[in-house]
Write a protein that binds this DNA or RNA. Sequence first.
DNA 1: GCCAACGTTGGC
DNA 2: GCCAACGTTGGC
Length: 158
Amino acid sequence: MPRRYWLMKCEPSSYTIDDLERDQTVSWEGVRNYQARNILRDEMQEGDGVLFYASNAKPSGVTGLATIVRRGYPDHFAWAKGHAYFDLAGSKEAPVWYMVDIGFVERFPDVVSLATLKGTRGLERMMVTQKGSRLSVQPCTRAEYNIVVKLGRARARR
DNA sequence: GCCAACGTTGGC
DNA sequence: GCCAACGTTGGC
């Protein structure tokens, strides 16, 4: 299986690339959307590349890179009664929701803003640049990933 | 804070 | 199975 690439969103009020740099690895629980669940459960593999995206931020954009360090496994918070991520769907015996672990790779010196992504050739078809794109875990192509990495690193040379 | 876009729920 | 109502996401 060749290395694949993803974009994962998180609001800075919950977790940031700085938090990930401090923690080095973190479990990505709490995703409660079936399309995203399918990606977490079935598609992500250890070593895949992740664009770490800050949503609802000033500005929103890609703040760094991560990688999948543990492929999909059941999100046990889904059956923790009283927990914010508790969900009636599924059970320990028949899990519905899944999570992965991600690891820190690199923090960009500056955020690559959504406006920049939208204005960059080659990213016109990237999911995050489309209007109304709400999926919190999105696939992207290797070409798109590489373009964003270049943008993120280029800013260090200003 | 506003509101458009989206996913989910539930009545019928 | 349709679709209106609702709650959430997330850009601005």
